[in-house]
Simulated assay, not measured.
Amino acid sequence: MEKRTPVFFFTPFVSSTMRVEAAWIDYNGHMNMAYYHVLFDRALDEGFSLLGLGQEYVEERKASFFTAEIHTLYKRELTLRDQVRVTLQLVDYDEKRMHYYMEIRHAAEGWVAASMEGLSLHVDMETRKVSPFPEDIAANLAVMRAAHARLAKPEASGRIIGIPDQPDKPEALLASGTRH
């Protein structure tokens, strides 16, 4: 079934307002890390449904998208009843993959609580194998990517996890031949 290409996409896409739920608060008195991903996932569903990749796509066309990799940075605590909105920027895509960047922002004050970079794969649900996007979905991706190309590349995109080298660490001193 051929879908019509949307005329435009918001840059970036901004989700509906969501509220931190009581069950998500852990013994530290803030939202547990797992629920940041619930918010990211809900917003991703909202944003990618505009591309035609919603529940109907799975039911009618027997295809979907699966998350292959994510990298999350937690920047600020969220607490009970905080309201947030999630932004989504399509960074890149190819015939089978989507690379995107998201931020959870406090809805009233605008500060960033967390960011997430992700890579999702288009999957044929009957074979459970990665497969190319249909032409109409690829066209929608092209429109979204063109709209989002005007945005700056996210600073946190492509980060590598690790502890930076510090000159006073024993390992760094040994490597440089310096002794105390």
Rank of each mutant, 00 (worst) to 15 (best):
S49C: 02
L51Y: 06
L51R: 06
G52P: 04
L53D: 02
V58F: 13
A63I: 09
S64I: 00
F65H: 14
F66H: 04
T67H: 03
E69N: 07
I70Y: 15
L73K: 15
L73V: 15
Y74P: 13
K75S: 13
E77K: 05
L78Q: 13
L80M: 10
Q83Y: 10
V84K: 05
Y93R: 04
E95L: 13
K96V: 07
R97Y: 08
R97H: 05
M98W: 06
Y100T: 10
M102A: 02
I104P: 03
E109R: 07
E109C: 04
G110L: 00
V112W: 04
A114E: 00
A114P: 02
E117N: 12
G118D: 02
G118R: 01
L119W: 08
S120G: 12
L121H: 11
H122P: 04
D124H: 07
M125D: 01
K129N: 12
V130H: 07
E135C: 11
E135A: 15
E135S: 14
D136T: 04
A138C: 05
A138E: 04
A139G: 01
N140H: 06
L141P: 02
A142T: 06
V143S: 05
R145P: 05
R145M: 04
A146N: 06
A149P: 00
A149Q: 02
L151A: 12
A152N: 11
K153A: 15
P154S: 00
A156K: 15
R159L: 15
I160R: 14
G162F: 06
P170W: 10
E171N: 11
L174P: 07
A175Q: 10
A175C: 10
A175L: 13
R179A: 14
R179K: 15
R179H: 14
